[in-house]
Amino acid sequence: MMDREVLLSVKNISIDYGSGKKVFHAVKDVSFDIYKGETFGIVGESGSGKTTIGRAINRINPTTSGDILFKGKKINGKIDKVTDRMVTEKIQMIFQDPMASLNERAKVDYIISEGLVNVHPEYDAKKRSEMVKAAMEEVGLLPEFASRFPHEFSGGQRQRIGIARAVIMNPELIIADEPISALDVSIRAQVLNMLMKLQKENGLTYLFIAHDLSVMRFICDRIAVVHKGKIVELAETEELYAHPLHPYTRSLLSAIPLPNPILAKQKKHIVYDPSMHDYSTDKPRMEELRPGHFVYGNEKEMNEYKRMVKE
């Protein structure tokens, strides 16, 4: 575990929207590493900044401070053209709403190959169409669909187009922003299975962003819980579910719907009230309480968490 290769390293990044008096700190001093081949999850409610983090990695949102290193190379802020191209190619994104993220006036074959045209202009049309065909097969779409428009597909198929578009670039890191939230239960399972298959076959690394902890448990190796732009807890998935420390994590876990009528009806939802933290004099920090399990809190809370860990 110690000698795993770090693919992406996020170091103390902050991201602000607006400036001057109207500035809004969407992400505050967030750090984490993503190892090669793992699935790293970011969980939080809407407005917590989880999407902003993903978009910053992909250079869609500029960072205010901090560093993002991809394979040891700085990729945020001002970078040279070669690095920029490398980011475009090696870090791909899958979006939540497949209809909103696909060009409705373009045919599937154009949508999927658009990235290739930009990054590999040396490929000729024949090579491109072969690659499109291979990518479509990989995500379970019939190659005949290449000449259709996105509106002719169901939600699950559209999401597959979105995934094919990412996979064709042969990326190393895929940022999946709520890729299954808009899909039906049965389709969700299909898309999740496919994402796992692609990971195994192509050695992909995923950054998975979602609010649904039940899905995250199934797919993620490690999870970071984000609240109001800050990571409040980070641990391996099973560790996080077995020993949630931060009250916000416990609140999220208690909100997962349980598919078992007896348990569901006994379940108590824990409400998280951020005003419970008194950080006026005793300043909070991130601390590793168990191997790989980090939690955010001040001295007093740390003692409390340490007691919980021992139990």
Binding site: V185, A189, L192, K197, V215, R217, L258, P259
Partner: peptide, 17 residues
């Protein structure tokens, strides 16, 4: 329908679909 719930999935195995 019950089988496709992610809560019932076993990690590392395919979810039922």
């Amino acid at each position: 329908l019950l089988g496709s719930l992610p809560q019932l999935g076993v990690k590392g195995e395919n979810l039922y679909s």
